[in-house]
Design a protein around this nucleic acid. Structure first.
Length: 364
DNA sequence: TATCCGTGGAC
DNA sequence: TGTCCAAGGAT
């Protein structure tokens, strides 16, 4: 007699929700399962904001940013009416800066509506919300019976059903399997339970199968192959690129400029510098011509930084100039204001390197 | 479908 | 040092 798939899925839901009731993580954007069952609903704004921040980003990293955003923008309308540059400044360091621009556009779109969209179709119309986030918000904020499919859910499913097709090509398979699992009674908790399981038990490396509530259902565990799932397609090697950056300190502060609002570090501030070349011999010391030639440069520690699809190595030169300057396409940022500025991490590294070099050479 | 898009932590 | 990859979306 073959096992009934419906019955297996029902056992899975009960086991996972029972585990979640005891083991749910306490997260600032989450309503605890006990409170949820007493009728406490999460704030859709909080759920949406957290989900945007959590795209490809760990909980530990997101927490302080989430707290800061809620403090600065307690309501959706506060975020919608904020200047974009403030949003970029508060987002600085979190990465994937298109998310910050989409968050701001999304806030405007949401605030212009009479109600927060409650279903996947409505949510998909909001900038920055794709299939995963639409399902996550629909399930968590509104208890719609859908299952968001993220890396955690893919990993859990691949092991449960021992799915051999490789990601990302097999994503449709996972979405089909996930949809079958939707819990009709507690969709929001079920979605969060899957993610907690993936984050804390069914981890990429050394999964803790011995405490897993789904152990008796897991086909990969039974084959002693949990760690070899999910199957993934091999990735291309990352190239390394090279460039120069020029940290220029004037009496009023640092010379910076705004990057184009699309593409790498879109809309963020940067330190003037060369293009980033694949060929290191093309990255030569060539400070901005508008500075003139008589400047004395000091050299900071080279910076290395890892982007998604290339590694970057930047040589840092720094100089202090005694006169004020006005330049088209540049602005001067007071040193006291770099903290709140829209400076991505790589630029902060460059600034630190340059300022350190200037300090080391002072009076020397 | 494939590529582009940050950052930090674990191993 | 290298490698993986984390609650993905836009194009």
């Amino acid at each position: 007699m073959s096992p009934d798939p419906q019955a297996i899925r029902q056992r899975l839901r009960l086991s996972l929700l029972d585990w979640y009731d005891k083991a749910a993580r306490d997260l600032p954007w989450r309503v605890a399962p006990a409170d949820r069952q007493r009728g406490h609903a999460p704030d859709p704004y909080h759920v949406w904001l957290s989900e945007i921040m959590l795209q490809q980003t760990t909980v530990v990293t997101v927490k302080p940013y989430f707290e800061t955003f809620l403090r600065k923008f307690p309501r959706l309308e506060d975020l919608a009416s904020a200047p974009l540059d403030q949003v970029l400044g508060l987002w600085a360091g979190l990465g994937y800066y298109a998310r910050a621009r989409n968050l701001h556009a999304g806030a405007k779109a949401l605030a212009s509506r009479s109600t927060f969209p409650r279903d996947v179709a409505g949510l998909l119309e909001i900038p920055g919300i794709g299939p995963y986030t639409a399902a996550a918000v629909a399930a968590i904020a509104f208890d719609q019976p859908v299952v968001p499919v993220d890396g955690n859910v893919e990993r859990v499913l691949s092991r449960l059903w021992k799915i051999d097709q490789a990601l990302p090509a097999a994503k449709p398979v996972f979405r089909t399997q996930a949809a079958k699992l939707a819990d009709p009674h507690r969709p929001g908790d079920f979605a969060q339970a899957l993610m907690d399981l993936g984050a804390g038990v069914c981890t990429p490396r050394k999964p803790n199968c011995l405490i897993c509530p789904l152990q008796d259902l897991c086909q990969a565990y039974q084959a002693d192959e949990a760690e070899s799932y999910p199957k993934k397609q091999s990735k291309k090697a990352k190239p390394r690129r090279f460039g120069w950056a020029y940290v220029i300190v004037t009496p009023d502060g640092l010379v910076v400029r705004r990057r184009p609002d699309r593409g790498l570090l879109g809309g963020m501030l940067e330190i003037p510098g060369s293009a980033w070349h694949d060929d290191p011999t093309q990255a030569t010391f060539a400070p901005p011509h508008w500075l003139g030639l008589e400047h004395r440069w000091v050299y900071g520690e080279n910076i290395r930084h890892v982007f998604t699809h290339f590694d970057l190595q930047v040589c840092v030169a720094a100089t202090r100039i005694l006169h004020r300057i006005e330049l088209p396409d540049h602005q001067v940022l007071a040193l006291s204001e770099t903290g709140a500025a829209a400076l991505p991490r790589v630029m902060r590294k460059i600034i630190d390197s340059g300022l350190e070099a200037l300090k080391a050479h002072q009076g020397g």
